[in-house]
Amino acid sequence: MKAIVFVKEVAETPDGVSVTSDGQLSSGEGGAFLTDPIDPYSIETALQLKDKSGGEVIAITAGEPRAEKILKEALAMGADEAFLVHDEAASGSDPYATARLLAGAAKKSGDYDIIVVGERAADDNSYAIGPALGQHLDIPVLTYVNEVREFDPENKKIRVVRSIDGGSQVVEATLPAVITVVKGIHEPRYPSLMGIRKASKREVPVWSIADIGEEAERVGPSGSPTRMRSFDPPPPPSGCEMIEGTPEEVAEQLVGKIMDKKIL
């Protein structure tokens, strides 16, 4: 069994993040970067599939060289291999250009049974990569997965529970497939000290866009169909009106205001 997990480096806070003239997010160099908080859930999901079915877990990220750090965290948790997709021409890719890079990386890493990604990244929240990968690789996609019920790489079948509007949906698909996971799925394990020590000594191979069979125009800003015009803090709160009195007085006043303003 082979599982690929795509992990992403994100800025810890949006404070140092800005938008380039090409309309892409730029994290600058100053701020702190970390593994997207959803990634440990994706890694844990892949590791549990490996615990059951044997095989290997490969962690891949597309990003800057410093993102090697998050791949080492994946290795420390138990991933077997890690690769960094990095190329000057690919910097400033929107999620759809990134999906091309990741699809190229998946093809390069050969016969996989499953690809695990997060439902959405913590920085751009774009809910794009999973469904876009399905199109590029022509394989089924199961989004918003909160439980893997059955995983049978022999017979090329997977059954999962999706967390969707109003309830849960049980769906079955053929493998290989992409799943996007939600944080409800499993508690991620902590890396062992031994794991951390071993991971720190590993070399992380770097793949260029040529290595994964992509072209410069199709990635980076020129290959990015979505462009941000602005990226600002939301408008400040209007100020909170405090309501005082006994519980009955308070209720009287608040309900009055809500009815007067026709909020309901």
Binding site: T13, P225, T226, R227, R229, P234
Partner: peptide, 26 residues
């Protein structure tokens, strides 16, 4: 609309930023 271009406003960083986004898709 910004002229003939439709712009979408959406939340990033879990609502800590608001982005106005142009769709340049073919």
């Amino acid at each position: 609309w910004d002229g003939d271009t439709l712009l979408g406003t959406r939340a990033c960083f879990g609502g800590n930023r608001t982005a106005v986004v142009e769709n340049c898709s073919p």
